[in-house]
């Protein structure tokens, strides 16, 4: 484990990360941030259906994922479950306060919107660290 930002960014280099976010501009923002660190972004996609298709197709090749919780009114939990089943670490990026988060996913790390990029990187690096 490290807290050094540079080390954390280095850790993301070359990894395959799924981005699920239905707001195009935000998706682009997250994807752009990750790509600038040498991440291979899978997606972004904006619906549960598309995200599930990718998770099923990618199988173990995904290193991590960033999930928005509310996708066009649909909760992302089906995607979260699929990732948990494949031991792929992921974090939530959400505008929802703890209050509305399903209790089953309380222990999943969260980045609150608007997203602080350094926080996003730190959360992702930590999640990937803990998965190994």
């Amino acid at each position: 484990m490290t807290t050094d930002p540079v080390e954390m960014e280095r850790r993301l280099h070359g990894k395959r990360l799924l981005v699920v976010e239905d707001e195009y501009m935000i998706a682009l923002d997250i994807a752009g941030t990750l790509e600038s660190l040498g991440v291979q972004v899978v997606g972004p996609v904006g619906s549960v259906r598309e995200a599930l298709a990718i998770v099923n197709r990618e199988e173990e090749r995904l290193d991590a994922a960033v999930l928005d919780i509310n996708l066009r009114g649909e909760r992302v939990y089906a995607v979260a479950d699929a990732l948990l089943a494949r031991h792929v670490p992921f974090i939530f990026a959400t505008g929802y306060a703890e209050l509305l988060l399903d209790k089953a996913y309380m222990r999943i790390p969260r980045c609150e919107k608007p997203i602080d990029k350094r926080e996003l990187i730190r959360q992702l690096a930590t999640a990937m660290d803990q998965a190994h």
Binding site: E23, M25, T94, G95
Partner: peptide
């Protein structure tokens, strides 16, 4: 929060 994220 969503609005702020879009603004960002």
């Amino acid at each position: 929060r969503n609005l702020l994220a879009i603004t960002q």
